[in-house]
Design a protein around this nucleic acid. Structure first.
Lengths: 207, 207
DNA sequence: TTTATTCTGTCTATAGTTTAGCAGATATAT
DNA sequence: ATATATCTGCTAAACTATAGACAGAATAAA
């Protein structure tokens, strides 16, 4: 596909998409880059730049048509068929994520979860079935995205199993920096790092 | 303070710090930028560059002394006195974070939490006392950092109250893009966006 | 209609970030 | 002692991202 869109832009697309959805539900039919800028807190020039990577989506003197833009992003972000996601590690954080309504944006769906606890196996949380970790390879064959919320000590081992089972993307909530092949995409959400770096920025980058 | 360190570097400091702590516990006394690179998955040139913003911390032909570096970062990241943090919104995610051991890195401490539920008030989760949200202004006066895990609908209202109470940094887990004054630092962790952008990158930035 | 206003799309300038490459200092091996 | 290997700190270059400015197209108002 088109490899030309900057990564920084790609990271903002889901954000734009969500706010367009909000506008649509509010019944708004048109929006300017300036209005959108106020809502998503991204410079309006940056927004126009981002949109223009996909062609001329707006109209001079008018702005953008909400429904048209929404439809366009729906296709671009492949909204029509939801991507199945598996979650590994049903601890405190895993449980919270199972209850988190990811499918509000209709392009991802938590399809199954795994845990090493025998007690949790064969139960449901947030409507998602939980299986024992021994069944990982057996159940996960059609899933390409995994959320990793296991203890850091077993993160690498589980990641290896995920990769071997054909997983192509991992959202890693553990502090471990995993070694994985190039063809697998990994994004880190490291809660301690986020909190520490917020504190660092507060102290060192004052008004 | 020294405003000269690039933000990208500042964001990596907590990561370096954690891995140095690990090495220390493993009894390693020296480490090269290459070894560290393998562990944290950051280019070794970038690591040397990052460290050099703080002066010449290493030795040519030898590498870095783990203890020395650790001590240095401990001071730089102000490890000696922990920063108090308040958490607002004790739902699924809030509860998970209260149980998450942030204080492993000794520079932040979850000191209190707030929720609108009367039932939760005056209880403890993960050793952290929970108060009713009505007591926010009364209790929070000495806290400068807040974690926001409330529903998106009330996020702005709570953020306004936090800012009015003197909070200087917010870690925002809600999908809302908050309007806050310039002197308040805000970092977003938007779980839906993270998952969606992972999926987008998987599809559009192949091997 | 005509005029004034709005607002995009793009160009250009600036800022920020990463990476390669290498001189020279230090360590280690012989 | 000498030679070889290691590994930093730095420079320069490439790359990436943000933001200001404005021509011109379209709308809205007069």
């Amino acid at each position: 596909m088109e490899n030309k869109i900057p990564q920084a832009t790609a990271r903002r697309l889901p954000l734009y998409y969500r706010f367009l959805t909000n506008l649509h539900h509010q019944g708004k039919t048109r929006v300017s880059s300036k209005e959108l800028s106020d809502a998503v807190k991204v410079d309006s020039a940056t927004i126009r730049r981002d949109f223009s990577y996909f062609g001329a989506l707006g109209k001079k003197g008018y702005g953008y048509n909400v429904d048209y833009l929404l439809q366009f992003f729906k296709e671009t972000l492949s909204e029509h068929k939801a991507v199945d996601v598996a979650l590994i590690g049903v601890g405190n954080l895993g449980t919270a994520l199972l209850n988190y309504n990811f499918s509000r944006n209709h392009n991802t769906k938590l399809a199954m979860a795994f845990d090493h606890s025998e007690k949790k196996a064969e139960t449901f949380i947030g409507g998602v079935p939980i299986y024992h970790i021994d069944q990982l390879e057996e159940k996960i064959s059609n899933v390409e995205v995994a959320i990793l919320t296991v203890p850091a000590t077993v993160a690498q081992e589980i990641a290896d199993r995920l990769v071997a089972s054909g997983v192509k993307g991992i959202l890693n909530f553990t502090p471990a920096r995993l070694t994985i092949p190039d063809h697998v995409r990994i994004h880190h959400i490291d809660l301690s790092v986020e909190l520490q770096s917020l504190v660092y920025f507060m102290k060192h980058y004052p008004v």
